Amino acid sequence: MDAEAGLGQAARDINTLAGFLGMRDVPALTRDALAARYGFERADVMALFGGSILAGGDVLADAMRSGVARTYVIVGGAGHTTETFRSRARALCPGLAFGDDATEAQIFSSYVSRVHGLGVDLLETRSTNCGNNITYLRDLLAERGDCLQEPHPLAGCHDAATHGCRGRAGDAWRAAHSVCDLCGARCRTWGRAFARRRARL
């Protein structure tokens, strides 16, 4: 296999992974898209699950400006990629203010505040891996108690379908309707929103 063919295959493989991991139930995080797909305009909660792609903060900010949820949460403690994320965030956006021990949620919160002038309602900062991202979010929402207003669903990510929800019909990864362990609420899950653009600095 020559180098060009190898690069072409690598690009196809990356696109396959991105298509799987970046699935979306709606084409955009807007009220109109929610209404067209689900028959409601606002979710009770939108959760950005940390990670290390700073442009996720842009996706969250766009959704906040669109008013797609009543409560906005950033989830992310410190895990095996957090130190690299701290360094990368400082390099991409030198004006961000966060400590040397900042969690992913704190870094994203700083970014959304500095770049977009917006603030979220809640930060979950205890999690250390994908598994307890959802369990600590569940606990945070249960403590808050007033986040979930029936019959409006929770807007989260596909992690919720596998870690926090029991699928009712079909493949759990693609379940649009499920009974969720988060406060016992009926929820619909959204795929992770991976931005395909550069972070605005």
Rank of each mutant, 00 (worst) to 15 (best):
E4I: 14
G8R: 14
A10N: 09
R12S: 13
D13I: 11
I14G: 07
N15L: 11
A18N: 10
F20N: 14
L21Y: 10
R24M: 11
D25L: 11
A35W: 12
A36T: 08
R37I: 03
G39C: 01
G39Q: 05
E41F: 00
A43R: 06
V45T: 06
M46H: 14
L48M: 05
F49E: 01
L54D: 01
L54G: 04
L54C: 06
V59F: 01
V59E: 11
L60Y: 00
A61H: 05
S66K: 15
G67M: 07
V68S: 03
R70G: 11
T71D: 07
T71W: 08
Y72A: 03
V73A: 02
I74M: 03
I74D: 01
G77I: 05
A78C: 15
H80F: 13
H80R: 11
R88E: 15
A91R: 13
F98G: 01
T103I: 01
T103S: 12
A105G: 02
A105R: 03
Q106I: 01
F108P: 05
S113M: 08
V115Q: 08
L118I: 07
L118E: 03
G119K: 15
G119P: 07
L123W: 06
T125A: 06
N129W: 04
G131T: 13
R138T: 14
D139P: 04
D139S: 15
E143I: 08
C147W: 01
L148C: 12
L148S: 04
L148N: 10
E150Y: 14
H152V: 13
H152I: 10
H152M: 13
A155L: 13
A155Y: 14
G156I: 06
C157F: 06
H158D: 12
C165P: 06
C165W: 01
R166F: 04
R166C: 05
G167F: 06
G167N: 12
D171L: 15
W173G: 10
C180T: 03
C183K: 11
R186N: 12
R186T: 12
C187W: 00
W190Y: 14
W190E: 10
W190M: 15
G191K: 03
G191N: 03
R192W: 09
A193S: 13
A193K: 10
F194N: 07
